[in-house]
Design a binder for these strands. Sequence first.
DNA 1: TTAATGCGCTACCAAATGGTTGCATAAATA
DNA 2: TATTTATGCAACCATTTGGTAGCGCATTAA
Lengths: 108, 108
Amino acid sequence: MNSRRDVFQAIADPTRRAIIMMLAVGSMTPNALAEQFKTSRQAVSKHLQILTECEIVTQEHQGREIHYHLNAAKMKEIEKWLEQFKKLIAKRFDQLDDVLRNLKNTKR
Amino acid sequence: MNSRRDVFQAIADPTRRAIIMMLAVGSMTPNALAEQFKTSRQAVSKHLQILTECEIVTQEHQGREIHYHLNAAKMKEIEKWLEQFKKLIAKRFDQLDDVLRNLKNTKR
DNA sequence: TTAATGCGCTACCAAATGGTTGCATAAATA
DNA sequence: TATTTATGCAACCATTTGGTAGCGCATTAA
């Protein structure tokens, strides 16, 4: 309920996912980003603010422009969670294997 | 803004992530799930409804109990997105390599 | 200096979210 | 049959979200 600012929140919005993809290619300004989408500059700016709070993005002031850089390392957290998840799934299949093995052994 | 019901929405909430983890181990009823958390049965039920709409979870009626199963395949979508992302990042590093190579070649 | 540009920030708004309480229904139990 | 149990569902509420419009502040251009 409270404003969780984590990676999962960051990638929950499709516009934000698109922004992340753009910044994965190279740093950009809010205006440059906004031109790529159908949303306004302000909307993009708001997403950038959220992404900054999630520590997925950092600012670099260059004159009157602000370049947004991607903190790719932060994305590792998603990968880590997915790995954990996959480990649990694997364990489940292992248990299934055990069951199947037992069935095999006990069958006449 | 509209109610997007996708995998990314599904894992955006920490309680929902926990539910997914529980179901990764084995199918469970709402009551059994609720006992694991500090939230109410109804709250968990609402999350299960969202997860069902996201097609991450399926129901299996068994008498008066409803067993919720995880559709692990759906989680692949996250993995797929992450792969795409990593490909872009890799490309960026490749470009950086090019730059470095050029610097090396042109330096006296 | 004046005008234009890039951007943040503050309302403001409709819709969604996450949660609670209470009721209805179906199944198991006494 | 009466009661308990498992669950969904609707109503309600405070907060968040995603978006727009407009103001203000630097920085660059004319």
